[in-house]
């Protein structure tokens, strides 16, 4: 009897082993995004500013902070863990990714696909799974990761002298239009409104937005919160580049203070993309 019991035990044990094995190599990170389009847009917004960067995965979500090559602009991105369902993370990991490669892989996903990010402990690769519910298609891709030595900057909470929120499409149009005339734009915020002006070889131009409230469609309103008037000059090429994030949100917030980098924020339902740009100082013309 005893013998039989032992043998049975051994059998059940043997049976257990193959079941446990997949658990041992289960990923450290598994994050499922309902719409692949969100990540596609985020990466598209960043990839021209930064080539290689770390996606830092921790409990709060997947974050990214990187400066452009010239160190005059900085992008800070957060996809909150609430935006994923589920978001499972055993240990904090940094995924060093080449954004050009990531763009290539994300092009293989449709906006409505369900996207799952997976990475193992001390990963060499990041795997992306796209599921299309409509035609039951599952695509799996892996991209190689790299070690990126990145320094993180501490960005202090700042009380800005002016915070302007406006339709992101409007901001994009202004930047593109003025970019044709000049390299840089002066942004002046006062109680009356905000004025974008530039002057170049062929002439000069300016666009003024007054504060107004659109009751039916609040995303089309322009709001100005002002503690003191501000006037700063910025590189238009960089602003045009930031505007690539317009697809992320219909509203953009510009925060300005004298002699401090401009903050351009695109808020998403569960996260944000923030751009910081150094002002042009001491070049009064």
């Amino acid at each position: 009897m005893l013998h039989k019991q032992l043998i049975l035990d051994a059998c059940s044990y043997l049976l257990l082993v193959p079941i446990k094995l997949p658990l041992l190599i289960s990923p450290v990170l598994e994050a499922r995004l309902e719409q692949a389009g969100v990540l596609k847009k985020v990466v598209d917004a960043i990839k021209d500013l930064v080539q290689d960067c770390n996606f830092d995965c921790n409990d709060s979500g997947i974050a990214l902070q990187a400066m452009d090559n010239s160190h005059v602009a900085l992008v800070s991105m957060l996809l909150k863990s609430e935006g994923f369902s589920p978001y499972r993370l055993d240990r904090n990991v940094a995924l060093g990714v080449n954004l050009t490669s990531l763009t290539k892989v994300l092009r293989c996903a449709q906006n409505e696909d369900i996207l799952t990010l997976k990475a193992e402990d001390a990963p060499d690769t990041l795997s992306l799974v796209f599921e299309n519910a409509e035609n039951d298609r599952i695509s799996e891709y892996e991209i190689k990761l790299m070690d990126i030595d990145q320094e993180h900057l501490g960005i202090p909470e700042t009380e800005y002298a002016a915070a302007i929120s406006m339709p992101s499409a409007e901001f994009q149009r202004i930047c593109r239009d003025l970019n044709q005339l000049s390299e840089s734009v002066a942004i002046e915020a006062s109680k009356e409104g905000v004025k974008f002006s530039c002057s170049g070889d062929i002439g000069s131009g300016s666009v003024t937005l007054r504060q107004h409230n659109n009751v039916d469609r609040p995303e089309l309103s322009t709001k100005i919160e002002l503690t003191e008037p501000v006037a700063l000059t910025f590189s238009l090429k960089y602003l045009v580049n930031f505007c690539k994030a317009s697809a992320l949100s219909s509203v953009v917030t510009l925060s300005l203070s004298n002699e401090v980098p401009l903050l351009v924020e695109y808020a998403m339902g569960s996260g944000f993309v923030r751009f910081y740009l150094a002002p042009k100082i001491g070049e009064e013309e």
């Binding site: 021209d48 500013l49 400066m67 452009d68 090559n69 010239s70 160190h71 005059v72 602009a73 900085l74 320094e151 993180h152 900057l153 501490g154 960005i155 202090p156 390299e183 590189s235 090429k237 960089y238 580049n241 401090v260 980098p261 910081y276 150094a278 002002p279 042009k280 100082i281 001491g282 070049e283």
Partner: peptide, 20 residues
Amino acid sequence: ELQMVDKKGMPKLTAFFKKK
């Protein structure tokens, strides 16, 4: 194109934000 931008007068961001 960004690399070709005239950055005259633009201080680096490290001048504003300190390294963590």
